[in-house]
Each structure stands twice: as C-alpha cells, then as structure tokens.
Nucleic acid binder design. Structure first.
Lengths: 236, 236
DNA sequence: ACGATTGTTGAATGATTGATCAACTCAAGT
DNA sequence: ACTTGAGTTGATCAATCATTCAACAATCGT
C-alpha cells in the first residue's frame, strides 16, 4: 500500500487508474461502475489497483481529490482566458457547461454533481471533498463577482449570488439530461441572466447613472439580445 | 406476470413493495439498493416481487410512475391549501423542500432528482418518466405563474421562470446535502426571491403604479424582510 | 363444487461483485 | 553481486447480485 497522501506520486499507473476511473464514474456513476471495468479500461490487473488504493471507496476519494486539484486548470482558467470582464466570465462559465452537455449528447453533466447526490450519504467520507469542490467552485465565481465592484449593488451578498449560479447550473444540467434537450437549461439560465441585468441596473442607479429605469432596453443592453421570435427575453 | 398497465391493482403486496422500494431508492439510490434489501424491508419473498415486476428495472419504473401519480397529492395540493396567492405558493413550495432537507438531516432531497442523475443514462427507459415528472412539476408552477397575471411582466416567459424555480430547488438541494447545512439552499433561494421581487417591480411599473423605483424598499416590500444582521438581503 | 386465475413461497441458479495474496519483475542503492 | 522494496501479476476467494421456478395457497367466476 502506497502512501495515500503522496499526491505527487510519479506513478504513471496510478494516474492512469485515476483518469480512467474519473471518466467511468462520470459516465456510469460510482455504483454502476465495477472495479473490473476500471481495470479492463485501464489495462491494469487488480493487484496494481489495490496497491495504490485501499479499495473502491479510496479510489473514489482519489478521483474526487483529482477533480478538486484540477478545477482551476480545467474549468476556471480557460474561462478567464476567454474574457477579462468578471461578469461576462460568469456567462462564459455557464456556456462551458452548456457546450459539454451538447457535445456529450446530454449524457454527462457536472462530474461532481452526479456523484454528490449518489454517494454523499452512502459514503460519508466522500461528502467532505464534494463539499470542498462546491465551495471552491463558488469561491471562484465569488471572486469574479467581487471584482465586478460597483457594477453590482453594494449590499448584494456576492457569495449568495455565487451559490445561485451553481444551483442554476446544476439544476439546469439535471433537467437537460433528463429531457435530453438543452431547452430547460437555456430557460433557467436565461432567467438567471435577466436577474443579473436587474442587478446591474440597480447598481447603475446607485451610481447615479441610469434614471432608475424599469425599462427593458437598459437592462438588456449588452448580453441579452432579442430572440429570433422577437421576444425581448433571450432564452440563451 | 400481472398486467403492468393495471395501475389500479388492488394488491396490497404490490403497493407495499413500491412503497418500500420508493423509500430505499430515495435513501440509498437505485444501484446501491439490492433487491434482497427491498424484499427484507417489505417482508416479501422474491417470487412475489417478480410476480408483479419483470425485474429490478421494472420496479424502478413502477416507483417513478408512483412518484408521478402522487406528485399533486403529496406536493402541490398541500402547498395550494396553505395559500391562495399564486406567487406566495412558489415560496411555500421551496420552503417545503427546505423543511424536508432539515427534517431528514440533509440525507434526502428530491426523490426524483437523485434518480435523475443516477439512472437517466444507464437505464434509458427511466428517462421518460423522469422527464415527465420534471415537466409535470414545472407545469404546476407554470400555472401559478400564469395565475399571477399582470403581477409579472407581460412578456416574461412563465415557463422559463418555472424551469428556473426547479433548477434553483434541485441545485440548492444538491449543495445543501453535500454541505450538510441549509446555508447554500437559503443563499440560492434568497437570490431567487430577489429576482421575483425584481419581476413584480417591473410589472408594477408596466401597470403604471410604481414610479419605476430601483429603490430597495418597494422591491422587498412583502416577502423579503430584513435579516437579523440588519442586512437588506434576506437569506431565507 | 370446480377449474382457472392470481398470488405466494423459498431454495437454488449462475453471474458478478469487491477484495486477497503468494509469487514474480525490476530498477535503485550499497 | 546482493539486498531492498515498490510495482505488478493473475488465480482465487467469499459474498452478494438479480433472477428463476416448481410447488403450493388463496380467491375468483361459473
């Protein structure tokens, strides 16, 4: 049994096992993925796996830790490279998950979100890394929202808004996967976008710029163009 | 094998099996629940179960159909008895799921939401009833939103807003279960409430009542009182 | 009263599950 | 050259998995 705390292990085998297990857990879920399946896909014999991981649960924890350690590199840094505008980044992030949904034919959503509902009760040890993943996710969004400064209302709790972003994403992904269509995701995100416009509007009023308009035009100024049907509400 | 389409079966055994399976699938998930566990908990021998259900998957479909058939009785009718105000009903609904979270110590969220992410890909036949469950859920909320009439902006797509309600609920439940605390749920729902106030504000402007205030007071008029810390933003 | 249908029993099935371990390889250290 | 120990192998394990089925009991319509 190798030292579990040695995250920087140079073992290529361990990495391959984690990589394969990550993909399979994401595709089929934890319970539905047998150890034998991981072994076959990774081209490794059982002894090797049990050399690095105490058991299947330890493998799951390893996968979750891996997700956590790669969250910035794989999710947030790509988004941040796309645009420097902090509020725009939120929508690019939501669009990233949207594209993942479509590209995988609605078979894969948030890799951790799936596991969260499946194992957070049956495997108590898994709840902590999952919670830390969500906390880390919202912390990054939170930072963006803070960076938006007075473009958002002064007394708006940025952290709560970040929690809403995650909720909309996970809830939208869930519906889209069940529906096998992007419409529910777009609907939820579209409404969220209007919420953001609402916030920006109010902040503009606070800064003394806008004339406190309830007018649709100023609220939809930039990101939310009219839909093809002429509706003022953009569904995506 | 009994006729599967006979939903009105008077068999007490079949009902007990479904009732127990529903609880176990909700608590532990589908994959983690063995048929033997269902049999033991229901006090039934395997032959009886396989007399009514072709197999474990058919049992799952039965459970999902049961959820669907009891959605109004167990969820929406209780909410509708609580208040006649259509918009208030939305928040009572969200509070219902909140209380379920707290009462079960964050071990149980939306019974279908869990299954949605777990089996909607691995068991294709299950996706349809799950999708219909979500569709039915949002349809009820949609009706309330329609009933709100001009209290919401005229061009606001009620259906999209209903999708957002479901997304916020499911996403909030997911986070609360992982966190084993209600805070993430309250944060997400709190932000959603502000979105609703925003909508009502704009509708009031459309009706020519308010003076298009961006003012906090009118937006938080009724449901969203100040929190104990004096913040203008209610977290729940 | 009768056969037919429906419901129930529980031991047994074969497949698969996660996990074990003694034996083996091989590069690094001395 | 010899030792050491991490890494790997694959046969093997008991347990559990979903499922079957022949036999029996209860209830039904006629």
């Amino acid at each position: 049994m190798v030292d579990q705390s040695n995250r920087g292990s140079t073992s290529a085998t361990r990495d391959r096992i984690l990589e394969i297990a990550e993909r399979l857990f994401h595709e089929r879920g934890y319970g539905a993925t047998g150890v034998a399946t991981v072994l076959r896909a990774a081209g490794v014999r059982s002894g090797s796996l049990y050399h690095f991981f105490r058991g299947k649960e330890a493998l799951l924890l390893g996968v979750l830790e891996r997700h956590l350690s790669q969250l910035r590199i794989r999710v947030f840094e790509p988004v941040e490279r796309t645009t420097a505008d902090p509020l725009e980044r939120v929508f690019v992030l939501l669009d990233l998950y949207r594209r993942n949904l479509e590209m995988t034919g609605f078979t894969r959503g948030c890799p951790v979100g799936n596991l969260a509902l499946e194992v957070s009760d049956t495997i108590p040890a898994a709840r902590d890394p999952i919670d830390r993943y969500f906390a880390s996710w919202t912390r990054e969004v939170h930072r963006w929202l803070e960076a938006a400064g007075d473009r958002l209302p002064g007394d708006l709790p940025r952290e709560a808004l970040a929690r809403l972003v995650l909720a909309v994403m996970e809830g939208g992904v869930m519906q889209a996967r069940a529906h096998h269509g992007i419409e529910p995701y777009d609907a939820a995100v579209g409404q969220f976008k209007y919420h953001m416009s609402c916030m920006e509007d109010r902040a503009r009023f606070e800064r003394g710029e806008g004339q406190a308009s309830g007018s649709r035009e100023s609220r939809q100024r930039d990101r939310s163009g009219r839909g093809p049907n002429g509706s003022a509400w953009r569904t995506w």
